[in-house]
Computed example of a mutant assay.
Amino acid sequence: MKPTLLILAAGMGSRYGSMKQVDGFGPNGETIIDYSIYDAIKAGFGKVSFIIREEFLDDFKAIFEPKLKGKVETDYIFQTYDLKPFGIDETIERAKPWGTAHAVLASRDQVHEPFCVINADDFYGYDAFKKMADFLTTEAADDRYSLIGYQIDRTLSDHGSVSRGVCQVEDGNMVAINERLKVYFKEDGSVVYEDNGQEVPLPSNTRVSMNFWGFTPAIFEQSLDLFKKFVAQNKNNPKAEFFIPLVADELIKNNTATFKVIPTAEKWFGVTYKEDKPIVENNIAELVENGTYPANLWE
């Protein structure tokens, strides 16, 4: 059974100022999602499921159905504010949905095979998809999950500091993930993060999570109670989000599952700031020039 690619695309990109999931970056207006899907198909994924808000359905279908027809199966999953499907009988007003792990949980009725989760607006590279496909087809189990570990120095923006989930790795498995705020390059090219106004150095090969996770459908049952508890604790906190690392942390702590950190040397890039757009366009242009991708992705 071929694994499924689950794309988190329900956020609108508040910092970016537009719907960056469908913004064009390639020579023929290809979106970042296009490159992820292209790599995933090549790596052996059998289905692409988009997690979106229901009001985006027609836009997404118009953009992706014509080019993916006959190449890969597609499916659409809606992330909503309705808590009843999760056995929570109350209505909580929020401006944003409940976060990435809630998005994964929202797919539980439509995903029945090992799957990976990625962000819509991040470029991950073929090596990452191939390694994840191999893991999902040969190694994944209900107590054995994974994430792709990027080198921190291959993930930073030149246009400001970023936050990164820094993985603590022992024997190839993640034992903890620490959110480091304000991570950036110094002028000498070394990497630091700020902690209470102090610069703390990070080795350039430190592994970070860019939200590229591998699971089996057992994750739905494993995270449901955690989500119910999270909602109960945060019903008056409209900004609280139920993130995948929170779930991973719980599962590791109570010995429910291990998370293999799969290293890649791929360069990650994404659009956090408007200024990142020309950089992404240049990166993709280079990859087209060196033959990694065809100039017209879907011809």
Rank of each mutant, 00 (worst) to 15 (best):
A133Q: 08
L136C: 15
K253Q: 07
M132L: 14
F220L: 06
C167Y: 11
A257V: 02
T206C: 04
L6N: 03
F220I: 07
K130P: 03
E187V: 04
T256C: 07
E179F: 08
P217T: 04
V288M: 13
K61E: 09
D109M: 04
V247C: 02
S18K: 14
G87T: 07
R207H: 14
R53T: 14
C167I: 10
F227Q: 01
C116A: 06
I7P: 00
M12L: 15
A141H: 12
V48C: 10
Y126L: 11
G214W: 04
E139I: 15
I63L: 04
F86R: 05
G29E: 02
A218E: 14
D121E: 09
V169Y: 15
T4C: 10
R180M: 09
Y193A: 03
V271P: 06
L6A: 02
D195E: 15
E113Y: 02
L57G: 03
D153P: 04
K182P: 01
S223E: 08
W98K: 08
Y35N: 00
A40W: 08
S18V: 05
I92F: 04
P97C: 13
D39L: 04
G99W: 00
A10F: 07
V169T: 11
T74D: 01
H112M: 02
E113P: 12
N28P: 00
C167L: 15
A141V: 12
G46A: 07
Y293N: 01
I77G: 01
G13P: 06
I7Q: 01
L224Q: 08
V192Y: 10
K84W: 11
T155F: 07
T258G: 08
D276I: 14
T80E: 08
F50T: 00
K47F: 15
D195R: 09
G172C: 11
A248M: 12
Q110W: 13
E250Q: 11
N196P: 01
K239M: 12
A248V: 10
E139F: 12
V22S: 03
I252H: 00
E199Y: 02
G197M: 14
Q151N: 10
R53W: 02
F50N: 04
T4I: 08
I7L: 05
F123K: 06
L287P: 05
T31I: 03
P66N: 12
D122H: 08
N211E: 07
A128R: 04
K274H: 14
Y16A: 05
D109W: 08
A43Q: 00
F269L: 13
K130C: 09
T264G: 11
P85E: 00
P203D: 06
D89Y: 06
A218M: 11
D127L: 12
L297H: 11
L287Q: 13
N236M: 12
F259C: 02
K131A: 12
G70N: 01
Y124C: 07
F129N: 01
E73D: 12
T91N: 09
F115P: 01
S157W: 13
